[in-house]
């Protein structure tokens, strides 16, 4: 079995036709489904949030079988994720894609759990602490994309579970949780 770092690649990654968009509808649906799962699994395991369509990305080519996805295929697979709400285009030209292997709502739930586990109710935490602090180490939150984290926090704010404080710079924004 081929690996990328510590990630186990699925069998289809070694089967050349999966790198060419299939013309027959049913076959294409299956193909898109497999790629969607692979992209989400890989991004989750490697904590990757942003995929650049025109940049090198380990999943977009397989040197072992000398195949790579062309621009159209990359677009099709990512668009399929976007239409399911598991990704978002970050620009109009569809060159950068934000991968939400957890939906914003799920991230918010993780934050709540983090707050409860660490007894942070009613105390102020900096945004940076949530991303890279001691408490978050080893949890899903470690290394979370800042933009994704802010959106999850704002969702919590809307629900009245958190209050975001602006600091002097974006580095020292703080959050007070009232779970």
């Amino acid at each position: 079995m081929q690996r990328l770092g510590d990630f186990r690649l699925p069998h289809f990654f070694n089967y050349p036709p999966y790198f060419t968009l299939q013309p027959v509808r049913e076959t294409r649906e299956k193909q898109v489904q497999l790629w969607k799962e692979l992209i989400l699994d890989y991004c989750r395991s490697q904590k990757i949030f942003i995929i650049g369509l025109e940049e090198e990305f380990p999943l977009f080519s397989n040197p072992v079988i000398e195949r790579s996805l062309n621009h159209e295929a990359r677009g099709v697979f990512l668009s399929a994720l976007v239409s399911e709400g598991r990704a978002e285009w970050m620009d109009k030209s569809h060159k950068k894609c934000l991968i939400l292997w957890l939906r914003i709502q799920d991230w918010a739930d993780h934050i709540i759990k983090f707050v409860k586990d660490n007894g942070l109710e009613d105390s102020v935490v900096t945004v940076e602490d949530i991303r890279s602090g001691f408490e978050s180490r080893g949890t899903e939150l470690a290394g979370i994309d800042r933009g994704v984290l802010m959106r999850a926090l704002r969702l919590l704010e809307q629900k009245g579970k958190a209050a975001i404080f602006k600091g002097s710079s974006s580095d020292d924004e703080g959050v007070k949780f009232s779970v």
Partner: peptide, 25 residues
């Protein structure tokens, strides 16, 4: 399934039923 990715540019027709994915390297 079609495969247009070979460097000679010729389209290949693959048959998953004769070569299981796991053995196709």
């Amino acid at each position: 399934m079609i495969d247009d990715g070979h460097r000679d540019g010729k389209r290949r027709y693959w048959f998953p039923c004769v070569s299981s994915i796991s053995s196709a390297t």
